[in-house]
Write a protein that binds this DNA or RNA. Structure first.
Lengths: 118, 118
DNA sequence: CGCATATGTTTAAGAAAATTAAATATATAA
DNA sequence: TTATATATTTAATTTTCTTAAACATATGCG
């Protein structure tokens, strides 16, 4: 599994967003969901995903609950109230950032001389 | 100066894009331009900006030329032919990524039952 | 039965990248 | 002379990601 280099810095927000929408998800499910939503463009590495989940849990933004399904352990994560609040803020900030980025990536407008009255 | 956490991973591409458009820029100018284009949302830290410039130079994507202007040294960077090529690729990739990100951040569609023929 | 594949989590070592902060240097305006 | 703006460099620390492996189970295929 390899991920787009661009995802750096946005992974935390993506996880918060998915949990805000799905209430309960486990790590593997999150990675599958991101792959699905991105049409396979983004493939999370577990080495990146799980440490972020632990960190969010440590920060009190997520709570984990382990369940055994089909003989395998699954750790379901869900947002705490603080997590819900932060998800809103971060998603909004990231949306704004993508707009900004889009503007930066736009071809620079050709300043025509007429603007200057010429 | 502090930057948006989201810029991580995209800085290299932003620099390539600005140089593709402006032919010649120096570090300070790049940081000012990004701040301007982002309506002050993104403020590059020099500790992040300059090492990226050195790295791009080492990779043969940029060439630097020092000039003294008003008694102060300025290091102008411009793209090498490889840099020009990479700029095209990276900008295109990042544009695609922002579209993907937008989709992920979109509210999840409510799957209505009628889709299933109910 | 054995093997591959899919499902799932954990974690360690190393590399890459960013943050923070300070040092160096000059011009100009107040 | 003091503050602000311009401009680059770089070191220490922290954060984050990549890569890779280990551990564990279920299922489908030949």
């Amino acid at each position: 599994m390899s991920s787009s280099e661009f995802i750096k810095g946005t992974l935390k927000t993506i996880i918060l967003k998915l949990l805000a929408e799905n209430k309960q998800m486990y790590g593997y499910e999150i990675s599958q969901k991101v792959e699905e939503l991105s049409a396979s463009e983004i493939k999370l590495t577990y080495g990146a995903l799980y440490p972020v989940l632990y960190k969010l849990e440590n920060e009190g933004l997520l709570v984990a609950e382990t369940e055994v399904v089909d003989g395998r352990a699954r750790k379901y994560y869900s947002l705490t109230p603080q997590g819900v609040e932060l998800a809103k803020v971060k998603v909004s900030e990231l949306q704004k950032f993508t707009e900004t980025l889009k503007n930066i990536l736009l071809p620079a407008p050709n300043i025509s001389l007429e603007i200057w009255g010429a």
